[in-house]
Design a protein around this nucleic acid. Sequence first.
DNA 1: TTGGTTTGACCTGTC
DNA 2: GGACAGGTCAAACCA
Length: 330
Amino acid sequence: MDTAPVCLDLMVGRPMDREPSLARCTGSRTEAGIASSACSRAPSMTNDEAKILEAKLTQVSEENRRLTEMIAYLYGNKVARQSPDGEGQQPASTAGSPTPPAGRKRSRDSMDASHSCDVEISNRNVGTGEAEHVDVDSPLSNGTCRRIKVKKVCTRIDPSDTSLVVKDGYQWRKYGQKVTRDNPSPRAYFRCAFAPSCPVKKKVQRSAEDSSVVEATYEGEHNHPRPTRAGELPGCTTQGGGSVPCSISINSSGPTITLDLTKNGGGVQVLDAGEAQPGHEESVPGRSPSPEIPEGVWWEQIGPRAPPGDQKFIDAPRRRAIPAGSCWII
DNA sequence: TTGGTTTGACCTGTC
DNA sequence: GGACAGGTCAAACCA
């Protein structure tokens, strides 16, 4: 919740010079394509057109401001609800709280959350994928709780693929691997590589029952927008000059970029650029373009990774900082 | 030289 | 307090 305003600020009413990749896109077919159409027509734009676009931009900016205020208001209510005296708090055992894990150890985050704060869970099984969304409130030092989103996603991959790489549109940096007691397959630990401050972690492990199923557990929410890169956005005219089909739409829950890389052997289906918006991916029905993809879950076909030389990361202090708004290779 | 991965050691919490 | 297990660190390795 506390990251939502940042997300909104980046998604709506964004100045065009901060999103060069989208601004270069062609084939944008929705109202959300204001930036792209504006950019492509800029050289021959008349004053009237410029004024219209400016008005639209102002309108979108105003919408952005209202949404930001709304988020701030909701967040304020949330904090009030979690007052130290405990009023308004739901019992930890309600709202579908799971039974404690069979193991003798719980994760620190889960453990913290189990002290006195909310646990909200929603389960969904769609096709071959499964998404389990858990909102966990982790207590802070001041006695309040900070909600940690825990989302479990199962997907089917090639059993011979041992990389444990689950592409979801974000950059991840592996920091550990461990063989757990209840599963012969190793569990890989990933951190978000986009920014050192991003709290999101991901655990990836093959299912003990079906080795072709990989379970990815996401903890926390990104405090930054989904990384994008012009060269990876089909339908966008890139610096390299390529252009492949894509559609970009923005609805009330955020931008959705539908990619079709079949011609390139890719197969990326959906990139939900608005993931950082709390819970929004669960609230949009019909998001999945394929039965093989869990509904509402941004997902991509498991495939070959980009060459290391094409990747840019930020994580360890020694890595170079990349300015906000830079394009990313996924 | 840079940056990602591997992997053994270490830390911490639970029983 | 010790054993156990999950999670993390960080040096070494590799591309």
